[in-house]
Design a protein around this nucleic acid. Sequence first.
DNA 1: CTGCATCCCAAAGGATACTG
DNA 2: CAGTATCCTTTGGGATGCAG
Lengths: 119, 119
Amino acid sequence: MLQTNQCQEIKCPIQFVVDLLGNKWSILVLRELFGGDRRTYELLAALPGISTKTLTQRLRELEAHGLVERRIYAEIPPHVEYSLTPKGHQIKPVMASLKEVGTQWLNQESCFCALTDDR
Amino acid sequence: MLQTNQCQEIKCPIQFVVDLLGNKWSILVLRELFGGDRRTYELLAALPGISTKTLTQRLRELEAHGLVERRIYAEIPPHVEYSLTPKGHQIKPVMASLKEVGTQWLNQESCFCALTDDR
DNA sequence: CTGCATCCCAAAGGATACTG
DNA sequence: CAGTATCCTTTGGGATGCAG
C-alpha cells in the first residue's frame, strides 16, 4: 500500500487544494468568513440550501486543516464563532481571482443563458 | 418559479465558478491543457484514476461553456485534440494562485500528515 | 443556539464492454 | 483512437429529530 504519506509528497499542489476545497460548499464558507467572524446560524443564513450537517462537516474539515478556528463561548445558550486563521487567509488570492474570472464570465454569458444553460 | 435567468444575475461570481469547476476533475483537466493541446488518450494518461466517461463529461461541459475547444481530424483511427479557448485562458490567475497556495500548504503540513490526515 | 445521529436520496464517478 | 452505454459503488448532502 505504501500510503504512508512521507514528507516527499508526489502530489501536485493544485490537486492538493482541489481535493480539499473542490466541493459544493468549502469555498463559499471561506468566502463568508472573509467577511468577518461568523456564528453558526449566520453561516446557515448566508448559505441558502446548506444543511446543519454539511456545514458542520465542512467546518470540521477546514478546522482540521488549520484554515478555520472555532471559538466557543461558555454561555447559555451556546455561542460559537468561526474565523479564518492566518493559514486560511492565504487563499485570499484564490478568492480574488475566482471573483474576477467569475465576474467576467457572468458578463459574457448571462445574456444567452436561456439558450445555453444546461445545469 | 422565476428561474428564467434574466440578465440581472443575483448570483455570486465566486459561486458561479465553483458550480462549474468545483468537482473532482475539471480544474485538473484545464491544468493539463495549460500545458498545450492534448489528445484524449494523453489526458487519460495524465489524469490517473479518471474514467473515459468522466473525462468526456467534463470536456463536454467545458466545451459547452466555451472554455475548451474540440478539434477533430478526419483520420483513421480517430484523432481528436482539445485546447483552451481564450475564455479558458482567463482562469490562468486562478490556476496560478491555486498552485501558489497549494505549494505553501504542502510545505506547511506535509510533515505531520500521519497525525492529522483524516481523508 | 449548536450540533450530533439517523435515514434517505441523488449525483458523481469508476469499471467494463462495445461500436465506429 | 475516441466515445457511448450499462451497471454499480461511493459520496455528498438534505431533512428531521433530539440532546446539551
